[in-house]
Every structure is written in structure tokens, then in C-alpha cells.
Design a protein around this nucleic acid. Structure first.
Lengths: 336, 336
DNA sequence: CTGTTAGCGCCTTCAG
DNA sequence: CTGAAGGCGCTAACAG
């Protein structure tokens, strides 16, 4: 490995002078700078970031922990994050937690070991508070995305869940639906909880009775949708929902698959809406009516906030950026 | 920041002993180990990887450069890569080159600066040879994925392009098509070139004349599909292709959009097939007939090969893993 | 089994 | 404007 000393020797200067050239110190004679730059080029010298980090205390490394890149929402988010990071001279290490607290914990520890400059995290749930503590203890700035954590005050970029639920429910009501079932995630995941509370609140405001039997919570990873759909369909005919509001794209896909097993047609027999497009590319037969969140912005703005936090004075901030969604009406919903 | 010395002091041992505990050295008395571990826990000490890397010469960091995570093919590939890396104790820094040689170059340089242990790269094209040299000069192992580079001998995981083209063309021929147009990428991108050559070879073997006017090369990033479709449609009726073979999912999506602008129906007026699903999640109205490559495996096996190269003896190897695809017949193709 | 010394590659600090 | 000394946090190599 070639070091700063090799360059120094070749250019007949001290290592310190080379260091100054690398770091664009102004106090360098043009002549020496040229000489050094020539040596750098000839030796193909690239400074060792680990060595620099040891002194500078920064790594220009950011960590992004999401649950699964394979989910189009997170795919776009990751792209937005990388774009902003790159634009600001940072690079991003990415990890998939798979909604698993232990995996998340391990990833956070190794991120700390790397002394990353900051972390963008979609926490697995409220239990992530424990993992977050690791970050705080080591003074690593972080911004939460998509989900917050009960009892944790910090910067976050989240969706405007209430409003989005409002749009989705309004759409169903306009189509004449009053029997609206809900499939959501565990209530220790903030956005799932928020969407559930919004569901209850909005229905009540609309004068629609909320039925416990229409509210189902599934694991986000192992979907349980077969079981949920079975239960819904086993209700007496007049108690069956005419529409299904699903708070997550993956859950929605599975729910529709389960419906198909029972030969229930969407939207003829039941209307379905959900959060987030399951398809990233404009499809040819777009099917699902969704509330699409600006996933790319989640990542972009998240990293932006994070970098501001890293580079700005480190007052412990707790800003929340709430992004709104867009209702896209397609063919999974129909007039009752 | 708390260091190994803080732990040493607290545990009443030398820093070296702490280091030994951290690295699971066998020659440590159980008692001292316990003492040290207690101190580590109490201080919440996490060793600094940069410092360690300075000595050990490894970073446990891998770099993944793809053209765009947002392309479902690369999304799955990235997931496979991360899974295998994680399984083996590595983490991955990911970058999107956007088919841009300069961006690729910059990413490679900063990867080298970090002294990453290895790189998995989907090169932008044959011109990437220049960038690859940076890696070789700095003795950084790399494996190419999806695309190789003219004149560069190295490990690679690629698709079996010939066979895949065979499947696609056979399918079209079986449906009665003989006028098969090709939309592919620039010929300095290896897989695009291979697919084009395969197209020519396979058609000739099938006794079908190859028409230059049916072969079109588009940029991969700015798609030019409107122009290409215009040209194809401006041909005299009897010279118009009855089917379209597109060598890339994004190109195919754009081509179909362009066709729609002209009110040309797929598959009624023209059949379309392509490489790779544009949709990662099983869709409800799957439309495109595709040859799906095992994207996840590309990433998983790629990282596996890379790690073998890193950890094995560093003989300069040049293995090529060729993965085959699966033809999925859907609704974008019809009997002529 | 444990400690001491030296040094990884770079930069801060202080002289000159 | 440039250089020398020392140290960032850790571990290899040796000593004991």
C-alpha cells in the first residue's frame, strides 16, 4: 500500500506538505502543489480514509436501516437517500432489518463500530427504543423515517397518516361503502398504530359504527392474511365488510391473494385500497387503488435532515417532517 | 469517545488484555476475561473499526455499484448481495451509477479510499475498463455482475444471454412470428451486445432473414423509445415487425408506452417480450411475457464469489458463473 | 497468561 | 510557506 510518505519522498517534501495538498490547504506554494500533485498522480495515491477518520472523527459514512429494500416503498426511499448523501459527499451503508429487533440491534452496533456520521432508521417498532439508546450513548445523530418510536423524541420524516387514511376512507364512502374492514400491522409499529387510530376516529366522525370484528392486525413479515380473510368471510353475510382498507402494500397483495383463493373478486365482490404502490414502475394494467406516499422524498429529506443535524450545531432537535400522500384511484375499488 | 484504555483502566488491566478479550484470544484467564467484559459492558464500549482497520488491513466493508436500485432487477440483486454479505460478517456500501462512467469512477475512487475489502460491480460499459484499473492498481478484489468488460479477464456472474434469447425467440416463433424487431442497448454494454449477437445468430439458424431496419439500439438511461417506435411504424405495412424483443425491462416499459401513443395494441397488433420483470411483486394482472433472470442470486452468488476471492488465496481468478433465466408467458404475446 | 513497545497512515500543533 | 514531533485507537511482536 502506498502512503503519504511515499508521495512525500517522491515529491521531495515532507508528508505534512502532501497532507496539505490533499486537503486543499491555501498556504501552499503553487509550485510545490504542482510537484506534489504530480507525484500523487504518478503513484496513483488515494488517501486512506480510516487513517484520516481516526483523527478527524468523521467517516463520511451514513447508515440506512430499512426493513426490506425489496419493498418498492423502501426501494425508492433508498434511492432518495443515496442521491442526497452522494450529493453531500457521504456514502451509505444499507441494511435490511426484516422487522427483526435483534437484527436491527446488530446492525446498529456495527454501525457504531464504524463510527458512522449518522443513521437513517425505519425502526422495527417501539421496542427499537432499546437500540436507539445505543446510538444516543455513542452520540451518533439519527433521524427516524416512516415510523417513530413511542417515548423517543427526535427528528423524523413520517407520512401524514391521518390525512392519508382520510383520503382512503372518503374514497370508499363516496363509492357507497360503509362496511369497511381494516387490515393493519402490529400496534407497536407507530405508523400502523396511527393508521388504526385514524380509522376509528374517521369512521366515527362519519357516523359509521366501528366493529371490532372488522379490525385485524397482522405481522408485517409473516402476513397471516389467509387467516384474516377466512375470518372475515366466515361472518354472516350481512355482517361482512364490502371493502377492505389495508395499511401496507405487502399486506394488501397478500390479502388479495387470499381473497382469490376463496374466489372472491376484487372489486366486484369487495373493494380494496392500501398504502403505497406495490409496483415501482408505472404498470400497464395498474390495478390497486392506493395512497402513494412520496417514498423518494422520505429518503432524500431524511438524509438532508440528518446531514443538517450532523453538520449543524448539535442541539438535540426533534423536528418532524410530515409528508402527504396522493390518492390514485384505479381498479380495485368500485361503486357499491 | 471511550477507548480501549478507558476499559483497561476500569478493569485494572493493560489495553492489550482488553484487545485480547475483544478478539477472543484463547490465552486469557477466565477471571480476567469476566472482569474486562464487565468493564466493557459498563462503559458501553464498542471498538473503533477505523483504528482496527489501520492495522488489520481489512474493513469488512464491501462496495456494490449498480446502475439504479430502482430497477427491480437490481433491487433484488442488492437484497441478495446484502444477505450474503451480512451472513459473512461484511457490510455493504451501495451506489447508483446511473449508467454514468464518471459517477462510477468517483464511486470507485471513494471505495478505494475506504479500503473496502472488495467490490461487486455492474459496469456501465466497456469504458469501465479504465475504472477497473483503479481497483487492480490498489489490489482490491472485484467481481463483475450482469455485465462484463471487453478485454477484462476477471470473476463474473452473468446471465446466460444466448439461452435466454433462444427461449424468447422460440416463444415468438412458436406463436407464428417471423418479423421480430429488436430493441437493445448500446453495444459497448456487454450483455446488450451479447443479446444482439444472439438475436442475429438465432434468427439465422431458424432460417429467418435478419433485417437491419428492425434492429435498434437505445441509450439505457434516456430511452429514445419514441423515436424507435416511430421508425418501426413508419415502415411500409408489409415490412413492419409483428413482434418486438426488448433486451431490458425499462426499455420494454417505455417501448410499450410509445406504442400506446400510436394506439398500437399489445398483443393484438404487436407482441412484446423482454428480459427481467419490471415488477418485483407478483402482480394481479401480470402483463408482460418475460425471461426472468434470478436477480437475487446474481447478488448472492456475486458476493459469495467475492468473499471467496477475498478470503481465499488471492490467485487472480477468472471464473464466470452463468445463471439461466425462466420464461414466463403472460399477456403481451399472442398467436399471429 | 499479561504487559511493553512500537507503529498502522494520517493530521494537529507548533516551530522555523 | 514548510517541517518535526506527537498522537488518534488499536494490535503485532516481543518480553516476561
Amino acid at each position: 500500500m502506498i502512503t503519504i510518505y511515499d508521495v512525500a519522498k517522491k515529491a521531495n517534501v515532507s508528508a505534512m506538505t502532501v497532507s496539505r495538498v490533499i486537503n486543499n490547504s491555501p498556504s501552499i506554494k503553487k509550485e510545490t502543489r504542482m510537484k506534489v500533485e504530480k507525484a500523487i498522480k504518478e503513484l496513483d495515491y488515494i488517501p486512506n480514509r480510516s487513517a484520516r477518520s481516526l483523527i478527524s472523527k468523521d467517516t463520511k459514512l451514513l447508515s440506512l436501516i430499512i426493513t426490506d429494500v425489496t419493498n418498492p416503498f423502501f426501494t425508492s426511499l433508498a434511492r432518495g437517500a443515496e442521491d442526497k448523501a452522494n450529493e453531500s459527499g457521504y456514502q451509505v451503508v444499507f441494511s435490511n432489518s426484516d422487522e427483526n429487533l435483534e437484527k436491527e440491534s446488530a446492525y446498529i452496533r456495527s454501525a457504531v463500530a464504524r463510527r458512522i456520521d449518522g443513521m437513517l432508521l425505519a425502526p422495527t417498532g417501539d421496542a427499537s427504543a432499546k437500540n436507539i439508546k445505543t446510538l444516543s450513548k455513542h452520540h451518533i445523530p439519527f433521524v427516524l423515517i416512516d415510523r417513530t418510536i413511542e417515548g423517543v423524541q427526535c427528528d423524523a420524516v413520517v407520512g401524514d397518516n391521518f390525512n392519508t387514511m382520510q383520503k382512503l376512507i372518503d374514497h370508499l364512502i363516496q363509492l357507497g361503502h360503509k362496511k369497511i374492514a381494516l387490515i393493519t400491522g402490529p400496534s407497536n409499529v407507530s405508523n400502523m398504530k396511527e393508521r388504526e387510530l385514524a380509522y376509528i376516529h374517521i369512521l366515527q366522525s362519519a357516523g359509521i359504527a366501528v366493529e371490532e370484528k372488522w379490525i385485524h392486525r397482522s405481522d408485517l413479515k409473516n402476513t397471516r392474511s389467509d387467516e384474516i380473510i377466512d375470518r372475515l368471510l366466515s361472518l354472516p353475510k350481512n355482517e361482512r365488510p364490502t371493502s377492505l382498507l389495508v395499511t401496507n402494500n405487502f399486506l394488501a397483495v397478500d390479502a388479495i391473494k387470499s381473497l382469490r383463493k376463496h374466489c372472491i373478486k376484487v372489486p366486484e365482490d369487495i373493494s380494496v385500497v392500501c398504502f403505497d404502490d406495490p409496483e415501482p414502475i408505472p404498470d400497464f394494467n395498474p390495478f390497486l387503488t392506493v395512497a402513494a406516499q412520496p417514498a423518494y422524498e422520505f429518503g432524500f429529506k431524511g438524509i438532508q435532515m440528518l446531514i443538517e443535524k450532523i453538520e449543524g450545531k448539535d442541539e438535540p432537535s426533534s423536528r418532524t417532517l410530515r409528508l402527504s400522500s396522493e390518492l390514485i384511484v384505479r381498479h380495485s375499488t368500485a361503486q357499491l
